[in-house]
Write a protein that binds this DNA or RNA. Structure first.
Lengths: 349, 349
DNA sequence: GACAACTCTTTACGCGCGTAAAAGTCGTTG
DNA sequence: CAACGACTTTTACGCGCGTAAAGAGTTGTC
């Protein structure tokens, strides 16, 4: 209740207020263990009676290690990135790093801005979920030359000489779900996602390879390139609605590049009554996704999918970055860690 | 391709590199219009040949106006807050503010940390979507004493003397959907949300008032207080699953405090076959939500709900904050702007 | 009691840049 | 041509704190 503590703006004032020298205070704030216990207690006592927080800028500007790491994500409205960011941020907190979040909002220009900002903030390293647009690679490469950078979720568009990457093993995850679908019914056709990042291509390739490896004919929807938009659900709905409308794929198994696409496809299937037990249907349409979106299990039918291990990915990315930072130099050899996904068998396939 | 520009670290170096004085450079970076066009061009030319960005900390530390605003949200994994943040950030960008995002991760302690951080960063104002926990108010009140602060989405737990608020008019939105439900079928029972912020209480009160005003008996589920968790879907699923299992509310109209609850309720209804045309059922269960979650229209049945005007709320909050900042003093009189929600009639009710 | 080992204080400098005041430069006016 | 205003350069100081070095104080040990 006694919130009317006197406001103290500088360490100098604080020092004279509690009779401790400023350098001692400086050391205390960076590491309370670095001063004698009695002194630390004295400082804590004093601190309790005043209202003071060290200036963030002044502190971070001069330290050898700023204790700052940047995170760049393309957007926050996709729960995958939101979760990833949350995990990374919490992991950073554990390691006494402060994270500066930058969102590129899907624009290469804003991504470049984010890079500049992080560079200007003495960040010690950056975790980046890149967007796949051309031209975005330049800024990232420049960033990589001055400090360690770990890519998550997807790889940058253009090839790097050396690149640290943490993400899902698309080969495994797509193999897992494709295998399951083949075992339990018709082999899947593949509904691709807009080419927003490397995952789109990787997953499609994985699908093609798996099918080819089992002498099955891969079939990818749609023929033309998908528009570059994050409105996955609507895109999938429109695509599948058109196809279902022509009577195509109404009994097919459809593997979607991600869950949000699958949700759109589900909607289209409902609109065409494909989930009602239709008389004469040999088998009903089956739809599967990828990612295990938090709402997938609340779909009707509950969406069968594969779950990315977001927590592991986020924590691994952060600790990899931390080790890069501690080792000083950008790593000599590339580290690439991909994690397997887990099959979530539900009702839709 | 020629990305091997020489790296320049300080303005001093830059000044001697392109034969312009440092103070002139300083002014150029703050406002290119403030120097003679010829000089500006000369600087731009030089800038194109080198690799330099002004140090973020050093610049923001000394300016009269840091150009920084803070945003505090409880979590990012809820699409409402993600969208809100995005809108606020883009609005801030328009007004030449840089936003520092802080996420409280649902913890009052982390919220307090966020407040301290923003205070230590010379932010000129803060937009906060508060969590309703007790104890969180103290830190926010302290923040409010030193700089303008605009609350969005929900109000802080304890009463403030003066408080700027921007959000949805729950009275209107709940009235809208309740009215619609009453007109088109049985009057709704209300499935409340965990008391995480003021919206939970406000919406329930609005529901009660509206029902009472029409001589209808309000009925709120569940009796006991909901747990303080953001796992809305699961909570609603379990609650409704238990009730449906007892044969209760199977033909009822259920108004949920938000869409994510409704999704859980939807799932429970499906599990009990309430959406299959059951023989003997007078009317089938109806479920409605609140917020217009991006996936609501992809539910089955598509969720009837009311849409909050997130964009308007975010932009209004930001411009209100901007005006508070420009006017210098924390506003004398409270500004409270609530916006109406729009009915989204779909299939679930 | 003296000695060394810590820990603290004092003093001083630096970080990269904002900002102010005075002096200099330029092109424009009369 | 001189006077003038607009812009720039020069010079200087300050922001709040990190950090280093040297001296003063405290503590523990024998």
């Amino acid at each position: 209740m006694a919130t009317k503590k006197p406001k103290i703006r500088t360490m100098e004032e604080l020092a004279s207020a509690i009779a401790v020298s400023r350098p001692t205070l400086s050391r205390f704030f960076q590491d309370p263990e670095s001063v004698r216990p009695a002194t630390a207690e004295k400082i804590r006592q004093g601190l309790a009676h005043v209202d003071y927080v060290p200036n963030f800028f002044a502190t971070r500007m001069n330290r050898r290690a700023s204790g700052l790491v940047g995170v760049i994500v393309p957007l926050l409205t996709d729960p995958f990135f939101a979760s990833l960011l949350q995990t990374v941020e919490l992991a950073a907190l554990e390691m006494d790093f402060t994270v500066i979040t930058q969102c590129s909002h899907g624009s290469a220009e804003l991504e470049a801005n984010a890079v500049e900002r992080l560079l200007s903030m003495n960040t010690e390293g950056v975790v980046v979920a890149p967007l796949g647009e051309y031209g975005s690679a330049d800024a990232l490469r420049q960033l990589g030359r001055s400090l360690p950078i770990v890519f998550v979720d997807s790889r940058p568009a253009e090839p790097y000489t050396t690149i640290d990457f943490v993400g899902t093993d698309n080969e495994q995850s797509i193999g897992l779900i494709t295998d399951y679908l083949c075992r339990t019914g018709a082999p899947p056709v593949y509904l691709g996602m807009p080419r927003l990042n490397s995952n789109g291509l990787e997953r499609e390739s994985a699908y093609r390879r798996w099918m080819a490896g089992h002498d099955l004919r891969p079939e990818v929807l749609p023929d033309d390139l998908a528009p570059q938009s994050w409105a996955f659900e609507t895109y999938a709905y429109q695509t599948m609605d058109a196809l279902f409308g022509q009577g195509l794929y109404v009994d097919a198994t459809i593997l979607c590049a991600n869950d949000r696409l699958a949700m759109g496809a589900l909607q289209a299937a409902h609109r065409h009554g494909l989930f009602n037990s239709r008389p004469g249907a040999r088998t009903r349409v089956r739809i599967a996704g990828h990612d295990d979106h938090p709402l997938s299990r609340f779909m009707t039918p509950a969406l069968t999918t594969v779950a990315q291990d977001i927590d592991t990915i986020g924590m691994t990315a952060m600790s990899l970055l931390a080790s890069r930072i501690r080792s000083g130099k950008p790593g000599e050899e590339t580290v690439e860690r991909t994690f397997p996904a887990a099959l979530k068998i539900r009702e839709s396939a």
